[in-house]
Design a protein around this nucleic acid. Structure first.
Lengths: 144, 144
DNA sequence: ATTGATAATACGATATTCGTATAATTTAAG
DNA sequence: CTTAAATTATACGAATATCGTATTATCAAT
């Protein structure tokens, strides 16, 4: 049976809403063990993806006030996860990079994601897995 | 070229970490317009999925303290999103259900997810879309 | 050189989360 | 049947987080 496009989309939406919820809980659990709050974790992941980014970049991406990100940065610096640097090219800004401890922490989160993804693939047979991964990557690449 | 299973999984993980981050920001934006915080939104979505569930069910699922969930429930009731009921079968518990306003709000979030999913399918051709949806559903069903 | 714009932070007000103690109800034991 | 123990949710206060406003430092432009 072939579902209509609209029906397909609806089902896909439900599935992804669940995936997201699942991942979020996974993340919250991991965060707890590092005593980091949700925002700090998101910031850490973003900085991992954008080394040397400005504080305001993170704030904009995570949709929080600059002051909130400043506090988050304080916490992450205090815990030795990231470093603040004043670039000579523009000394108003603060460039953020992960320390080794920060990288290790991110690796821990990634491991959690990794396990969750592994569980996702479980019900598929090898050919299906290959298809699913291929299509997912095609989508991810398109997102920039 | 066929990637190894381990490599596949690694790439899938990266892709899903991004998807989750994207969805989370989408959600945060929608939440802001309803002036609901992240926890309250997650609670709303869970109650939509489990009508009549107990407060402690939500707390356990979202990995927060019962008192925190109680506060969240207060807020959602105050905003007319959900209703508390004392079931006759066990009057210690509180059964939570969405009001019409709550359902409308959830529908709004779902619309956001819907749009995001729609964008995801865009780079795929019709046959690929069908495959991707089929495999995603197979995974989702397996998750209970 | 001065004015205006940009980037981050200090500080205080409000809101959130959580631990402890408490109240209400159910279950189990005597 | 009565009492003790367990379960479920909440009240309250302490610690923390978020955000708006004001401030400082730097850069850009006239």
């Amino acid at each position: 049976m072939i579902a209509s496009s609209a029906e397909q989309l609806k089902q896909l939406t439900l599935a992804f809403e669940r995936f997201t919820r699942r991942f979020k809980v996974t993340e919250a659990t991991a965060a707890m063990s590092n005593s980091l709050n949700a925002l700090d974790v998101q910031a850490l992941l973003f900085i991992d993806d954008h080394p040397g980014c400005k504080l305001s970049d993170v704030a904009r991406h995570l949709q929080v006030a600059p002051t909130t990100m400043s506090s988050s940065t304080d916490r992450l610096v205090r815990r030795g996860m990231i470093e603040r640097q004043r670039p000579e090219t523009n000394r108003r800004t603060v460039a953020l990079t992960l320390t080794q401890a920060g990288k290790d922490t991110v690796a821990g989160y990634m491991e959690g994601y990794h396990d969750a993804c592994s569980a996702m693939l479980e019900p598929l047979d090898p050919a299906e897995r290959a298809d699913f991964v291929r299509l997912t990557l095609k989508i991810a690449q398109h997102e920039t």
